[in-house]
Design a protein around this nucleic acid. Structure first.
Lengths: 159, 159
DNA sequence: ATTGAAATATGTTCGTA
DNA sequence: TACGAACATATTTCAAT
C-alpha cells in the first residue's frame, strides 16, 4: 500500500488568522507584538497561530520586495513560446532557468507550450534576450512578445 | 521653472548592499543582527545601508507569501482582453480592480489591450469569473484564456 | 486556544572614529 | 561609512488555565 501524501487542501482559518495574515502580507517585518496589540490578543497566541499556519504550508515564507526600476530595469514583457515537440519542454525550462531575466515560466493551455515573464533594462536588452538567449534554446520554434506598458494591478490572493 | 522630479534611476549598490538584499529577498524576517554576523559588519551599518536603499526607493516593502493552493485556489490563468476602444481602458481597469480574483493587470503591446492574471479555485470558478465578471465589463469584446498548468519559475530580479 | 511571565535576542539611535 | 554601547522592544518558550 502506498503512503498517502498529505494533500494540502482545505485549511480552516478564522477571522483572527486572516487579520494576522493581512498585516503580514502587507509588511512582513511588522512586529508580532504590535499586531497582537492591534487585534487584542497576546503575542504568544499569534506565535502559536503562525506555527499552525506554517505547518499547514499556508505560509510560504516572506520576501523583501525591491523596485527593479531603480536598478534600471524598466521593460517587462510576456513571451509566448512555441516548442517543436512537447517532449522538449523540461529541457527548455531548464535552459530558461539559467536566464536571469526570466522571472516566471508557466506551462499553459492554448497556443503556446510555455508562457514566460521577463524583466529587462530596455527594449534593446529585451531584443538581445529574445534573439541571443531564448531563440537559441533547442526546440524553440517561434515566440510572441507582449511588452507590459504599465502594470496597474499587482497583488496576492485576498483573504 | 518646474520642479525636478527625481528619476529613480541608477542607484549605486555595492557588494555589501547586494548581500544584505539577497538575505532579505529570501526571508524578510531574517534578523538584521544575524545578517550582520554572517557578512561581518555591525548591525548599525546594515541599518544605515537599509535606510539609504529605502530612501532611494529601491526597497518597496516586504510581504508574507502565502500558498493559495492550501486555501483551495489551484487554477491560475492569464487572460488577454480585447477592448472596443482604447478610451475605455482606465474604466475597465477600475472594474478589474474590484474583482479579487484578478492579481495582475498590464497594458500590453500586441494583440490585446490588456493582459491579466487571475487565480481561481477551479475551472468552474474560472468560467464564472470570465463569463459573469470579466465579460460583463463595458468595452470588453473578446478574451483569450491561457491556463497555467504548472508554474516552473517564480522569482524576483537577480542582483 | 489563550495568557502572563521570564529569559534571550533583536531593533534602533547616537556619539565617535 | 562604520563602530560599539545603551536602551527600548520583540521573540520565544512554558506552565497554567
Amino acid at each position: 500500500m502506498q503512503k498517502m501524501k498529505s494533500n494540502n487542501n482545505s485549511v480552516k482559518i478564522d477571522g483572527i488568522d486572516k487579520k494576522i495574515l493581512r498585516y503580514l502580507m502587507e509588511d512582513a517585518r511588522r512586529p508580532i507584538l504590535e499586531i497582537a496589540r492591534n487585534i487584542g490578543i497576546s503575542g504568544a497566541a499569534i506565535h502559536q497561530r503562525l506555527r499552525k499556519l506554517e505547518n499547514a504550508k499556508l505560509l510560504a515564507g516572506s520576501k523583501f520586495i525591491i523596485n527593479p526600476k531603480v536598478l534600471g530595469y524598466t521593460t517587462m514583457a510576456y513571451i509566448g513560446i512555441f516548442l517543436d515537440k512537447a517532449m522538449a519542454n523540461p529541457r527548455a525550462v531548464k535552459e530558461l532557468e539559467r536566464i536571469p531575466e526570466v522571472l516566471e515560466c508557466h506551462y499553459t493551455t492554448g497556443n503556446w507550450s510555455i508562457l514566460i515573464k521577463v524583466l529587462c533594462r530596455d527594449n534593446e536588452h529585451l531584443m538581445m534576450v529574445l534573439n541571443k538567449k531564448i531563440q537559441q534554446i533547442e526546440g524553440v520554434s517561434r515566440t510572441e512578445t507582449f511588452i507590459s506598458l504599465d502594470q496597474q494591478i499587482d497583488r496576492q490572493i485576498s483573504i
